[in-house]
Amino acid sequence: MSNLGNFVLIGLSNGLIYSVVAICIVLIFRSTRVINFSQAALAMFSTYVAVSLIDRGVPYYLAFLIAVIFGFIAGALIERFLMRRVESKSPLNAVIVAVGVLITLEAMAGVIWGATLRNFPSHFSLIGIKIGKSRLGISPFDIFILVVVLVLLGALVFLFRYTKLGMMMRASAFAPEVARLLGVRVGRMLTLGWALAGAGGAVAGMLAAPRVFLFPNNMDAVLVFAFTAAIIGGLDSPVGALVGGLIMGVSLSLIGGYLGSDLENPGAFLILVVVLMARPQGLFSSISERRV
């Protein structure tokens, strides 16, 4: 198969992971207007929890599930006990607290598990699938990523589109005061939003770890890519975040493949700058008057 095809496939696979993190960023931004910079650290921390369980002989899928539950609870606790205190203040306060959480979690991971690179055992082969004589750019693990992300997205769409709980969360995000008037306990909806983002982060962390190795700030680059993806998608559109993640994945894969992997990070920033200059409201935002 041609290089181009393989680069695109690898890019799509990575892009799915960026999409998950981007969707989590959007989930929180929509309801609180805060960019959750601690998203990456929460993902990394949950992944460490999983790997220490796997080291102790816990089966992969169970460890995966526990990591997701850990992310869910950690997200809820961060909202309830930290973010809630700065909720009524300027958004800058919340951003600073989120960055504080990021640094704290990364430092704690270093203290608990050691600040060294470690290999994350992949449950699936990372070697490309062979069709005839040529090897594809996607491995069984990529298929696993695709399935997990699709299940996650399906669950989120179901929650927000078809359940009363999802309606209440959307109402709280759209007009918290009106929602409160109608009896919605907006505070709980925010906690739930952070919990879901924490769980989503854990999924992203588990999916990213076999490729990027595991160390306390292994998800930082993913955060930058996902943040760019969320901006491309307009910051308040989950579909936009999904597409933004895929665009980022493919673009970075092409940049890395043809120009050298050193250029991936500068490439991400270049894309961010171009999007902000050409279409600051993002490609999918319904809020046309927003300016960054």
Binding site: K164, L165, M167, R170, F174, V184, R185, M189, L192, S286
Partner: peptide, 26 residues
């Protein structure tokens, strides 16, 4: 809520009737 249907808007008004908490509901 401009991005919710008429039915969804009215259903939100019935929130106080829910007894199952959000986490259980999830």
């Amino acid at each position: 809520f401009s991005r919710m249907t008429v039915l969804e808007n009215v259903m939100i008004g019935g929130t106080s009737l829910t007894k199952v908490g959000p986490f259980r509901s999830l």
